[in-house]
Design a protein around this nucleic acid. Structure first.
Length: 560
RNA sequence: GGCAGCGUAGCUCAGGGGCAGAGCAGUCGGCUCAUAAUCGACGGGUCGGAGGUUCGAAUCCUCCCGCUGCUACCA
């Protein structure tokens, strides 16, 4: 009963290195989900890429006196390194800078324009006569019309949190030169979201398996009513509008364009496979389920505007496009109580961790504190504590004590168990039931719960070892010790599968220590009993314990 | 301002009409295979406050207090 699963991961902006918030909020849950489904034998396509457009990229480029393309290329390479090190198994991690993406965006744009769902209108934008350019909202400063704060930004007042359009500011100033911008009419294309409000609402109302936060936020916006929204801007950085009637300085704005990357990446992947039509299995096959892993600030685009665009495109094309089956949006992971932020340079940067930690240790901590239901906090002290007290003590130590005891006393081979008694059978049944529970939990995107289930099974196996005490039985009841250790090796082999989506590197190592010469993937999602007599490899500890001082050093690095 | 969420043990959090839970930290004990890891026991809470619905409320409703997020351009 194999399934087909499409996984889209939110596209990080190329304005800084990848940080822990992006990983724990999007890439890690997506990867756990993808690995789990592959282990079950399901067909998975997981794509994402670098969003090279957008204001944050041009801001950074201007700050550094470089071109936006240089910035985008640098961070794209950085993303690839970080994702590879963490073991995030993307089928394709591309960028929004490809010709393919531009063509797909143009195709959707033109189809929706033919259909009337993209239309031309004018809007009033602040224009700086000195710099001879239209200004994005955050390039305008002035006095807040709500509270009188004089340093308010054009998109939001930092003093009273009032959000506004830049043209509402009193005494506006251009952030670049201080000149007073003038309101000037500008012609733009708009997306007719309003026409799809009811259709989107009908669809969302049926999604009873969505996280309550995602549903209630989405329905709240839909009940207020979607407004048509401009999808072009007066910019020089971005995908050009595929019509020449507006002049060359208009670009398609990122919020409309970057989500199209999910489709263009699927097409790029198919082309690379030598099967150019293979993307259809994930987009037009009704049996395929699509999941989008995003942060909570991205919910609007994934539950409303992107589904709307897909509905319209599917209509125009005559072939319905698959909408999201689920958008398991995560909350935020703060750093020592403060919001992680690329532009404020405040986060745990993944490329700083490379070669200093074991990626599974980072994956374990991030998953254990994944912000599934509310914001969570990254602290180095907690990282070290959880690593030592949970990952090393419970799971790593179970493996190490069982393997060393067996290796030293049974010729480095899986012992011959004789007949298993009830206690042994019960443990193995509990592990098998546990694999079924974790299957259900990960399937519902309850990643923390699945990890907790696996850890509690490791505890139960530790308890079994203590109660059967093979080290005591060895001198005068060798068959009992053999039975106990054989059972524990079976249990560990089942737990190896349970942990494999979470801790893929150590699971693969353990697979080797247990004497298998295959890949772990060949086990499937089940407990396989290692054959008696199978030659083990000499075991090494799965995870390193961390010195408590590391937490203090890292806290200092963070503060500096 | 609008919308949403949170407030539960010293700490981090789960639970969500039917006897208040887990991990960590603390105390005591067992074991000595294991990275001083592990296994067991114990102590510890007016479930933010006040009302209401109910046979029964941590859970549902109303109000209040405190914190947070989103509000359509930084996951």
């Amino acid at each position: 009963m194999n399934e087909t699963i499409f996984i889209g991961v939110a596209w990080p902006y190329a304005n800084g290195h990848l940080h822990q918030g992006q990983v724990v909020g999007t890439f890690l849950p997506a990867d756990i989900f993808a690995r789990f489904h592959r282990q079950r034998g399901d067909r998975v396509l997981m794509v994402s890429g670098t969003d090279q457009h957008g204001t944050p990229v041009t801001v950074r480029a201007e700050q550094e006196g470089r071109t936006p393309q240089e910035i985008a290329d640098e961070f794209h390479q950085s993303f690839l390194r970080s994702l590879d090190w963490l073991g995030i198994t993307m089928d394709l991690f591309t960028t929004t800078g490809t010709e393919n993406h531009r063509d797909v965006v143009h195709d959707i744009f033109l189809r929706l324009r033919e259909k009337g769902d993209i239309f031309k209108d004018t809007m009033v934008m602040p224009y700086c006569p000195n710099d001879e350019r239209f200004l994005p909202d955050r390039y305008v400063e002035g006095t807040c019309p709500n509270c009188g704060y004089e340093e308010a930004r054009g998109d939001e007042c930092e003093n009273c949190d009032h959000s506004m359009d830049a043209i509402e500011l009193i005494n506006p100033r251009c952030k670049l030169c201080g000149t007073t911008p003038e309101p000037r009419e500008s012609e733009h294309y708009f997306l007719r979201l309003s026409a799809y409000n009811d259709k989107v609402k009908d669809w969302v109302s049926k999604q009873e398996h969505w996280r309550p936060y995602v549903s209630s936020f989405t329905l709240g916006v839909l009940n207020a009513g979607l407004k048509d929204r401009a999808i072009t801007r007066d910019l020089e950085w971005g995908i050009i509008v595929p019509t020449d009637d507006m002049g060359p300085e208009k670009r398609i704005y990122v919020w409309f364009e970057n989500v199209i990357g999910y489709l263009s990446a699927a097409k790029e992947w198919a082309e690379a496979q030598g099967e150019p039509e293979a993307w259809r299995d994930f987009w037009q096959n009704r049996e395929c389920r699509s999941y989008y892993f995003v942060g909570k600030d991205n919910i609007f685009f994934h539950t409303m505007s992107w589904p709307m665009a897909l509905m319209a495109y599917g209509d125009a094309d005559g072939k319905p496009m698959n909408l999201a089956y689920d958008v398991p949006a995560n909350h935020f992971n703060n750093v020592a109580g403060r919001k992680a932020s690329t532009s404020r340079n405040q986060a745990i940067w993944i490329n700083d961790l490379i070669d200093r930690y074991d990626p599974d240790q980072i994956r374990y901590y991030l998953c254990a504190t994944m912000p599934e239901t509310s914001d969570s906090d990254f602290t180095w002290k907690d990282f070290v504590a959880r690593n030592n007290n949970e990952l090393v003590a419970t799971w790593g130590n179970l493996v190490h004590r069982a393997l060393t005891l067996t290796y030293r006393n049974f010729d480095g081979k899986v012992p011959e168990p004789g007949e298993l008694d009830d206690r042994c059978q019960n443990l193995l049944r509990d592990i098998e039931d546990g694999l079924a529970s974790i299957d259900e939990q990960i399937g519902l995107c309850h990643f923390r719960a699945g990890l907790a289930t696996a850890m509690s099974l490791a505890q139960e196996t530790n308890k079994f070892l203590d109660e059967t005490a093979p080290w005591k039985a060895l001198p005068d009841d060798r068959p009992s010790a053999a039975r106990s250790l054989y059972t524990v090796l079976c249990a560990i082999n089942g737990l190896k599968v349970a942990f494999s989506p979470y801790l893929p590197f150590s699971a693969e190592r353990l697979h080797g220590y247990l004497g298998f010469e295959t890949r772990l993937a060949e086990d499937g999602w089940q407990l396989i009993r290692p054959p008696a007599g199978q030659q083990l490899l000499e075991p090494q500890p799965l995870f390193a314990k961390l010195d408590v001082e590391i937490a203090e050093e890292e806290e200092e690095r963070l503060a500096s």
